[in-house]
Design a protein around this nucleic acid. Structure first.
Lengths: 154, 154
DNA sequence: CGCACCTTTTACGTTTACGTCAATCCTATA
DNA sequence: TATAGGATTGACGTAAACGTAAAAGGTGCG
């Protein structure tokens, strides 16, 4: 499986091919730099979110890949699914105004914002309920330590 | 499979056996009353969280089962896993002070509360990030509609 | 009688984002 | 040359809480 030209083969391991001033990174470097695992990067690629070049079979990530990964991670941080992220990124056209992409992103963002707010409300509810029952439990415990009598329990 | 006595067999479908003043419910009634599916009730039973009586093969839920279900649903509402709920319920002893149970519940509750608060912080972060980027997107869109010139995009 | 309705058990399917081997390959270095 | 360090492609496993058939039995009503 020698699909690699001599020039490319020389550009391995620690050295960086200065071919066009591009800083290419291999998967390990990418993983460290962005705090993800190798598995994650391959997974994103498998899902069509990343498309690194290849030196033979070795993945080489360009500046563009890094930008895309940043977007993915931002998307995940705000709670988008990878599918959503892909949908939005797929609309990117370097030669256009990307109005469609921006509109889709805005649309999805509004929905996601609503979801997040609903989630927050749920969590607040949960916190309140939990705090309340904790108070009750503490109360029962203090009673129990005072007089060891059996009593009601749900 | 006739394991049912005539008296029990008569107490089916819509009628309620007034055997001991117990209001027994079948699975369908339980499901409606507590807003869960049949599958859920069977699942909880499979996981050892519920233990309804049987009339032959038909499940009959007692007052105690209802109380337990309420606890399960409260637990789920505040974000406990079914495993956690089971652990806590398994410690219940009707003839004791249940101090151990209460302590475990309190311990788990404190940890869950911490998780919930962390989650809320994450969601707040997400809301902020998302709002920020939405503003940016809106800005880009308005620029784009003003002057249809291609520009930078991440 | 026949149909609708409720119930049963068994068991595979779903969702999301990876984790965790496993078997191989390639390369630089001591 | 032996070895350590990265890299590759599968491909099954995981978590949680059920969903969803499938095949079957009991029951009451018109």
């Amino acid at each position: 499986m020698k699909l690699v030209s001599p020039g490319e083969a020389a550009a391995n391991t620690n050295s960086i091919p200065a071919e066009a001033g591009e800083e290419l990174a291999r998967i390990g470097e990418m993983a460290k730099k962005y705090g993800v695992t190798l598995r994650t990067l391959r997974f994103y690629e498998d899902k069509g979110l990343l498309n690194p070049q290849r030196d033979g079979s070795t993945r080489l990530y360009t500046r563009r890949d890094k930008a895309r990964l940043k977007l993915i991670l931002l998307g995940r941080k705000v709670g988008f699914s990878l599918r959503d992220v892909k949908q939005m990124m797929d609309l990117y056209d370097p030669s256009g105004s990307n109005t469609k992409q921006l509109r889709l992103a805005l649309d999805k963002s509004e929905k996601q914002l609503a979801r997040l707010q609903k989630q927050r409300a749920l969590i607040d509810d949960a916190i309140n309920e939990l705090s309340t029952s904790m108070t009750a439990v503490r109360q029962m415990l203090s009673e129990r330590s005072a007089q060891p009598q059996a009593s009601a329990a749900g």
